[in-house]
């Protein structure tokens, strides 16, 4: 699987503004940023990195629509076709207001669980996954800027220089299993 591994170059910073600076400069030179690891959310970093908007919301809508449809079909099947029940003399031969709360709740349930599951799948946050920290301190007080070596416009010399000039404490190279 060695050929599937990717080489990354990491700049380690101790200041949020410094990492922002480097991101701006590298992007200005056309370098693609693979990712940034920060101990806290850095305001505006996602925009600076040029991260595209997630399509998670479309997934959420589809899960909601699925839940809504299933709720309607299931209730109609149970109450009108399979086993009509007389509950307080309410009609059950079609879609009635008494079906709305279940439809509403199942729509929300499917949206929430579907979206959470999709999020975990897309981010590969699966239970038992071993963490691949560049530096353990990135969860404490350090900021890591990762760039893939094979990325577009990559020039090791230039990237190293920009990171050092931008205030990186150290630069590391590492291969990661994809």
């Amino acid at each position: 699987m060695a050929n599937k591994n990717k080489k990354y170059i990491y700049g380690i910073y101790d200041d949020a503004d410094a990492i922002m600076d480097s991101v701006h400069k590298l992007r200005g030179q056309g370098v693609e940023i693979h990712d940034c690891y920060t101990p806290f959310p850095v305001h505006g970093l996602d925009k600076a990195m040029g991260i595209k908007r997630s399509n998670l919301t479309i997934g959420a809508f589809l899960f909601g629509a699925l839940g809504c449809t299933l709720a309607i079909v299931f209730q109609l099947y149970v109450m009108a076709a399979d086993w009509p029940m007389n509950i307080g003399g309410k009609p059950n031969d079609g879609y009635y207001p008494s079906f709305i709360p279940v439809t509403f709740e199942l729509t929300i349930l499917f949206t929430a669980f579907g979206m959470a599951t999709l999020f975990f799948i897309r981010t590969k946050l699966i239970h038992g996954k071993v963490e691949q920290l560049v530096d353990p301190r990135q969860t404490d007080d350090l900021f890591v800027l990762a760039i893939e070596e094979k990325s577009h416009n990559f020039d090791k010399e230039m990237v190293n220089r920009t990171m050092i000039d931008g205030g990186a404490l150290e630069i590391r190279e590492r291969e990661l299993e994809k």
Partner: peptide, 10 residues
């Protein structure tokens, strides 16, 4: 709206 309608309907 539904809270008002549904309870009265029910």
């Amino acid at each position: 709206w539904l809270a008002q309608y549904l309870l009265i309907w029910y």
